[in-house]
Structures are given as structure tokens and as C-alpha cells.
Amino acid sequence: MGKKPVLAIGYPTVLLCHHLALTRPSQVRDGEIYVHAGQSIQAAIDSAKPGTKIVVEAGTYTEQLTINKKGISLVGDGAILIPPTVVIQNTCTDLTGDGTGASICVTGSGIELAPFEVEHRQVLSVAQPVKDISITGFQVNGFDGENIAVVGDTVVSIYINNLAGAQILNNHVSGYSIARCIQTSGSEIAFNDVSNCCVGAFIDPGIDGVQVIHNYIGSMNPKCTAQAALGVTVGVTVWGAFNSIVESNFIQNQHASGMAAGISVVDGFDVGPEFIATGNRVTNNTLFNNDVDMFVNTIGIGNVISHNQCFTPVALCD
């Protein structure tokens, strides 16, 4: 497949927490803020105006971040986030279970959330959306919730809910049940590296026009075997979604008692009869050494499964 994607987000190894004090103000140049090791990323976010690019230079930052304003570009350049001693309470608290918190919480205002069910809390309403947020290049260690959670309309490790056109690019995710839970139409998940998870990317029922392209999804977490009966051990699953593009991904070593799949396209009848996988394109993927490379079980029309380099089943592989 060539050069593997850039590694940036993931590695949930628990590190010793330490306090990094704000030793000097961040540098501001031409609409950009530069944060150095020993400074506060949150302070830079709080002071930033819409359209600001915040560059976080190499170092370990003991912070849990909240972005609640539009037009912020947050760029890590060798930056590592680890949990603070005191957990920050924000919209993303308890999003994936009691006591969980995201390392980076992107949130609108006036958000109403449903109670936790199965894997996360659904967004019921948003009073004021947050828009035009970009986050790239961070390594996140030791948080018990999502690495990045986005809640509010215009990231589970990366949970995206109700944010039109979100992009998750050039990240590394490891050691989670669901690496990417995608509940946002028009999202792009590209050039990411996933390993040691039960699901690489999960496109929820009714979600329209998601692109999952040029990702590497490696060996599955051994703890995922118990979830095989639930049908959630898979590299990429299109579950009752519409017009998805799953293309040019490399997926290998998905194993769970013979029941794991590299890519699956299935209907979401258990959610509702209207969630029939329709118009999805699964093309030019490379799948190797999975229990089943391709699993397709849908009555939907317009699905294209072609030009995938794989072995099982023969009828779906080229």
C-alpha cells in the first residue's frame, strides 16, 4: 500500500501526570498563536479570535481542552496531551459513560443530550452551533473518554455527532472499542492509522455521504472477541447508511473467533425499517488476513462493491 499514514492521535498509555505551569505568554504572529512547552493551550484557545491558527509545539501538556468558538485551527507539532489531575467538566463529560471525559471537546452551546445508551449519548438539540474547527497532529495518552469529541451542529476514540462536514485526518488511534463513531453526514475520515481496536470506523444508520478513504486499519484488540456475537468487530462498517464512499483503505488482521470482517455493509433494521444501506461505494480497498474480508447483507439498491483486492468471499473480490 506504500507509506503508512502519519501517526498523530492515540496511544492510550497511562503516563505519570505532572503540572506544566504557564511560564511565558504565547507568541502571536500574523493571526497565529504559538504555544511552547510549559504554556497553556487552553489559555491560547480562550484568547483566540475566529480564524486563528494555534500551533502547539513539541512537548507534553497536562490539559483537557474545550473549544467552544468558531474558526479555530489547532495544530500539534509533536504535542502530547495527558489528563490533568482535576478533570474538567464540559459538554463532553460522561459522553461515553459515567466519569468519562474527552481530551479535546469541541462544543456548541445550549446542547441537550440524551441519556447514555450502549456506547454514547445522542445529541437532541443545539441552541448555537460551532463551525469551522480543525484539529490535527496531536498524540493523546491516558484519557478514559474520546480523544476528540465534537458535539454541536454546523469524535469511542473519535466521536463525531451532528457536525456537518467534519474532517478527521492524519491521526493514530489505538486501544479503543470503536476508533471512530461517525454520526455526521458529509464527514471525511482519511489518512488515519488504527490498530488494537474492535471497530476502525462505524458509520451510523441514516448518515449520508461519509467518506472513509486512505486509512490503515491493523490488528484487532484481542479483547474484542466477546463482541463478535454483536457483529461489531470490523474494520469499517456501513450500517444502514447512505451514499458512503469507502475507498483505498488497507485493512488487515481482523480476527474474533472467526466472526470479524474487514468491511461490512448491512441494513440497520434493528434501529428502524427506513435504515437500508443504499447508494454506498466500496471500491479499491486492500484487505488481507481477516476472518472475512467483505461482508455484505443488504436489500438496498445502488450499492457498488468492486475492484477490491481481497480473498473472501470470492464473488466480492477482484
Rank of each mutant, 00 (worst) to 15 (best):
D208K: 08
D270I: 14
S103Q: 09
D270A: 10
T154C: 06
V212G: 09
Q227D: 15
D153N: 10
G235I: 06
V126M: 03
D208S: 10
V151C: 02
V140Q: 12
S26F: 15
K223C: 06
A277D: 02
Y159D: 11
V6C: 00
S264G: 13
P205A: 02
I245K: 11
N303H: 15
V292S: 13
Q42Y: 13
L74E: 02
I301V: 14
V234E: 08
G218F: 01
A256K: 05
H19I: 12
Y216E: 02
P222Q: 04
F288V: 05
Y11I: 10
P313A: 11
N221L: 00
L163Y: 08
A226H: 06
P313R: 10
N192K: 06
E247R: 01
G235L: 08
H19A: 10
T96G: 12
A43C: 00
Q128L: 06
T66D: 08
A164R: 15
A277M: 02
T52M: 08
G51D: 08
C92Q: 07
T233P: 03
A127Q: 07
V314L: 06
F202T: 00
H214L: 05
G175I: 00
G262D: 10
S248V: 05
S109E: 13
G258T: 07
Q128I: 15
D77F: 03
G152A: 09
V140H: 09
L230D: 11
P12R: 09
V151H: 00
E117I: 12
G235S: 15
D204N: 15
K69H: 13
N249Y: 04
K70Q: 10
T85F: 15
Q183W: 05
G186R: 07
T286S: 09
I182A: 05
G97M: 08
Q227I: 02
L7C: 03
G262E: 09
I111M: 08
S134V: 10
A229P: 03
Y11Q: 15
V156S: 07
L316I: 08
G218K: 00
I41S: 04
G186S: 07
V238P: 01
N285Y: 08
E188Y: 09
V6K: 11
I88P: 01
F269T: 08
G97A: 12
G142N: 03
V212L: 07
L113M: 14
S257N: 11
E247P: 01
T298R: 13
N90V: 05
L169M: 06
G31T: 01
I203D: 04
T62S: 13
C198R: 04
D98S: 13
C92G: 13
H307E: 12
N196P: 02
L95W: 07
L22C: 06
E117H: 12
A48P: 11
L124D: 10
V56H: 09
N253H: 11
I133Q: 03
Y11D: 15
S264Y: 02
S248I: 05
P313I: 12
T298M: 12
T23M: 11
C105V: 07
G110V: 02
A241W: 04
G200S: 09
